[in-house]
Simulated assay, not measured.
Amino acid sequence: MTPQTVCLLVEDQTPNQVRMKQALMAAFPDIKVEVVGSLKEARHWLSGEQSKTDYVFELAVIDLGLPDGSGIDLITDITKSHPLVTCIVSSIYDDDVHLFDALSAGARGYLVKNQEPEMIVHYLQRIKQGEPPLSPSVALRLLKHFRTHTVTEQPDIHLTGRETETLALLARGLTIAEVARHLLLSPPTVAGYVRTIYQKLNISTRAEATLQAVKRGLA
């Protein structure tokens, strides 16, 4: 039997818990949604997750303003301990500070809460196509930032063909496993390319990799 996919929903407000859980189940009918309301509860759940064999942890939807701390800290933890999990922010904030802090921590999507439920479902469904779910206001901020910081001259640092392909796919929000399937390579091989890319470009986060891809005309 194929293990069920599970999403960890970290949200402290009951109406928002209900709203987002409904959106997740509408976007992914077979998903199991685990709801917690704090960093402590989320970390407790994560501490026992490794022993589970009846489901696969693939998605986390995380509020940034939690009663016992910032959801950004949890995104950092999950990115380090579960690198194949897609972390999505669900927040009332869409300013540059929250947005870029979350992306730097490893978030691969950012949804603003004050949208119609059907639009939340629409953006979540983009994950199936390997596209990052982004609310319109967030996407506009990213475009403005990248236009402002993109340089016109050619980058001096040379990447090989495979490294260039890998960087382009990373910028689209694909996981290492998804990049591997796309390029018909093994995940360890792709992980090696990612390490080399990060070393060559002197970067350490997916947000920086996306910016580099934009500068090179890959995204």
Rank of each mutant, 00 (worst) to 15 (best):
S47R: 13
W45E: 10
K200W: 10
L64V: 10
S47F: 07
A213K: 03
G37S: 15
E34K: 11
E11G: 06
R181E: 15
H98P: 01
T86E: 12
R172A: 07
E118T: 10
Y93P: 00
P67Y: 02
R108D: 00
C87F: 02
T152L: 14
E165Q: 15
E131H: 08
V190Q: 05
P132K: 11
G106D: 06
M119E: 15
P15N: 04
K200P: 11
E163N: 02
E163K: 01
V10R: 02
G173C: 09
T160L: 11
G217P: 05
Q13E: 15
R206C: 00
S186N: 06
S38Y: 07
V36A: 11
R216N: 12
A191H: 15
Q50W: 04
P29C: 13
D94F: 06
V6F: 01
R216P: 13
T152V: 08
V97K: 15
L24C: 02
L184I: 02
M20R: 01
K52G: 04
D77F: 14
W45L: 08
T164S: 13
I197D: 08
R141H: 10
E131V: 10
K40H: 09
Q22A: 15
K113R: 13
E49W: 00
L103G: 06
Q125A: 06
D96R: 08
Y93I: 01
N16I: 06
R195D: 14
R43D: 08
H122N: 06
V61T: 09
S70W: 09
D12H: 11
T164V: 03
T79K: 12
A26E: 14
T53F: 12
V6I: 14
P132R: 14
P132F: 00
P132D: 00
I88E: 09
Q125S: 12
A26P: 02
G106S: 08
G48Q: 11
L9S: 04
Q199E: 13
L184N: 12
R108Q: 14
P187F: 07
T2S: 09
M20F: 09
L39A: 05
A26C: 04
L169M: 08
T148F: 07
D77W: 09
G48E: 11
E41Y: 05
L74C: 03
V6N: 02
P155G: 12
I72A: 09
T2A: 11
Y55R: 15
Y193N: 13
S186P: 01
